[in-house]
Amino acid sequence: MAVREAQQQPALAQDRPIVEVENVTVRLGGRPVLNDLSFAIYPGDFVGLIGPNGAGKTTLLRLLLGLVPPSNGTVSLFGHPLTRGNHRVGYVPQHQTFDETSPLRGRDMVALGIDGFRLGLPLPSQEKTAKVNRVLREVGADAYADSPIARLSGGEQQRLMLAQALIGDPDLLLLDEPLANLDIRSRRDVVNIVCSVVRQRNIAVILVAHDVNPLLGSMDKVIYLAHGRGVIGTPDEVVQTDVLTRLFGFPVDVIRAQGHILVTSAEEGGECHA
């Protein structure tokens, strides 16, 4: 299915797209995980990547990281073909557990974002320490950066992971489910930090989430994925009954109440009668 480009192209002509995905299909084990997907993302875009489990969200991020090749179509980053290990891309993987028995300071983990891929010993330098301190302040993690990561809360760990991804000064930030397993307050904090980082640095971010609600008011665009197909546009354009019904191929109701959006279905609840 062709993807609807509901969004008007930005009026500013000097803004060349950071990400351009054209008619991309990704097959894993013969099964299409992403199907004929097209979208473009520009500097300053806060993009929510929303969809149920198995919709292809993580695959889309792995595609942009160059870890999964497209079977069809083209992907370009910053106007060039994809490469793996592109240091203009910052990446925070899905939540991982840190082990209490093998402690490491948050600060040391963040520093690995500068040159962790390079051979040799990680030797401290004033320049590096200053850089680490700067990014720790930017995400508000300076107060606990000397504690072992395993001792920190989920929200604090998420800020440190964000700092690690930001320290290489990326132009594109990919965040895989940073809000999972967080309480409401930490979710709000993480979204606010990401939002202010995107605005101040004028970079683009793709934030993967299950639910649109925590991102309402912050995100500029939403990519809604289902069964490997997707729709992109502003939240108002995409999160609509007719658009999502077409995407899911199933009657979907979008209910807006008190600034929240509920995506549900009249047919939800099953039809198992006695």
Binding site: G85, D115, G116, L119, G120
Partner: peptide, 21 residues
Amino acid sequence: VIFRPLLYMSVNPIAAEAGGV
């Protein structure tokens, strides 16, 4: 020689892989 990338992939394997380790 392998200290830094080994440390990176020990604490954050997925990010390390994406970073080219």
